[in-house]
Design a protein around this nucleic acid. Sequence first.
DNA 1: TTCCGCTGTGAGAGCGCTCTCTGAACCCTC
DNA 2: GAGGGTTCAGAGAGCGCTCTCACAGCGGAA
Lengths: 348, 348
Amino acid sequence: MTPLVRSRLGGAAPPGIKADVDRRPVTLEEVARIAGVSRATVSRVVNGVATVDRELRQVVEKAISTTGYTPNRAARSLVTRRAGAIGLVLPDEGRTVHDPYFGRVVSGVLPVIRPLGVQLVLTTGDHREVVDDIRQHRLDGVILIHTHATDPLPRQLIEANLPVVLAARPVRPMSITYVDVDQAAGAALAADHLISSGCRRLATITGPLETPAGQDRLRGFLDTTTRHGLPEPLVVEGDFSREGGAEAARHLTDAGLDGLFVASDLMATGALPILRNAGLRVPEDLKVVGFDDSSPAVECDPPLTTVRQPVEDMAAEMARLLVDRVDRPDRPVSSVVFAPTLVLRESA
Amino acid sequence: MTPLVRSRLGGAAPPGIKADVDRRPVTLEEVARIAGVSRATVSRVVNGVATVDRELRQVVEKAISTTGYTPNRAARSLVTRRAGAIGLVLPDEGRTVHDPYFGRVVSGVLPVIRPLGVQLVLTTGDHREVVDDIRQHRLDGVILIHTHATDPLPRQLIEANLPVVLAARPVRPMSITYVDVDQAAGAALAADHLISSGCRRLATITGPLETPAGQDRLRGFLDTTTRHGLPEPLVVEGDFSREGGAEAARHLTDAGLDGLFVASDLMATGALPILRNAGLRVPEDLKVVGFDDSSPAVECDPPLTTVRQPVEDMAAEMARLLVDRVDRPDRPVSSVVFAPTLVLRESA
DNA sequence: TTCCGCTGTGAGAGCGCTCTCTGAACCCTC
DNA sequence: GAGGGTTCAGAGAGCGCTCTCACAGCGGAA
């Protein structure tokens, strides 16, 4: 399909991968023998250590390319105590994996770590498995996404001083590296847009208010309406699910609203049919802004104006922070907060 | 080996604040010393080799649990030449990763391999990376999803006799293990449903006809209409994309249809608004059946009656076939075809 | 010259595990 | 009781790599 991939294959295709699978693979030892140097010198060349004579380096490099040598990662891991792999931990297989958000994380992480020769290992949030994987040196660190308030895993990893990065601000403050979007700023973006579109009778369907995201989005929304001197908006708590959005919307159909901020696109997809069935036209009667810019936002009717998190960028940053922490565990934790943007579609 | 080394383990932490990560983990050697047996015996217990005396086994097991021993996978890999990891190869990061299908594959694979202690490594279809990973013994085998007709990777892996499983029937017949759904049967299911709902003037929006899925779904559809003695249905080729679905639908608005089979849900989400704008009510005027049962099917309006592939089951089967092949590379390739089901929603 | 420091190379000791091979201990049969 | 067979534990040799340490070689200072 993509010419890029194909062209890259054409030239670089190794002289048959067969050789290495059927036969015993080439070892450092063998390269050393061919180059007429010691194993140590080949190792230096492979690992880019500077203290190798230029000519000798070239001889070694030639031997490497003619033999098609690739280092055995297990052997290297054994001595370096590095797995060369990081884990992406999913809370449970049932939900998150199906969330398009997950795919965006993956496509943000891969381009960062692959050039470093680091693998991305997918694993469930099963506590024991994650810890085991790290203890067995199968994982150098982990990215945790969608952890729940009650999940002891983050704290335990922190206490064990294991490299870990969270995909969101932790529920309770702790000394942990995380990457997040400025949730409140995103909600403010939504509120500002509604207000500047002429809406005056606002409401919001929030996320679960025990989550940081739920809290922050509500706060950003309310702060903005207050700043504009608008009356207290209607607030209905949702749970980030489609059904939760539908249920919340039922409380809003008779409120005479002209603007609604729904704290997640998924909830919005649940809410829209309810609103429509109640005779409210979106956006003519009621303008609706979502949050996440997930695929439901594109697919629903009308397509949703929504707050976009730069998930790929955030994921890439998580990968960078994690790799950095693996390399230098002593460095202080640092977190990064990204700015959201508003994506204009047809619902507001 | 030398007692000196071991005493370093038990003793106080080295100068400076050393993290848990850096603390030397328990080794076989140490468990053996505590249990008063040899390393070999502990290894036997760990690996479940039967020829260990019951009492001795219990002593060893106790030593393992008190020390919290976990085998170092790198060391094991080095000698067994097994990575204990399989790869899930995505064609490119841009598309598939965002496809909910991908998540379903992951959640089908994980429950199969995690109990076996096998890791799931996510990687892009970049040819060199995949081959490198396998050559470096970082991957025991791979599951390829969404390979294109021009992709040389499957054939190369086959020729190199590397364990590989395809997530679909290969474009050109080859001696390769694959798992697929019976595409034609799925299309027949859709056609049967439309016909038994009273539709007589049928059409289909197909997938790209150079793909096996595109071909088979069309064939299954046409075979069924023929069997029922209906007139030749209208056939418009699509490309499995939302836009392709919309484009194809434009050719169908004036055809006086009462039944439409769209060969993918995503295309259906593109087609539905076009049909609605043309004044066709779904399902009153025109019944529509999709294919895939992906999330768009749920989210679109009206929710789509569609053909469901048992993706999780299929993925689990892929994992099983792959693991099996890794264990016994000499066994003949065998493929598995799953039966699709019809999911009734509101569009037909 | 002698000594020092510096650069760059090789030798060799492991990393933690598996697995073969040896041999002790025991049981059976004649 | 001897011979043979069977069972099961231990010794030891690696797997392929990294990394420390010793040291050769060389230029320059004393």
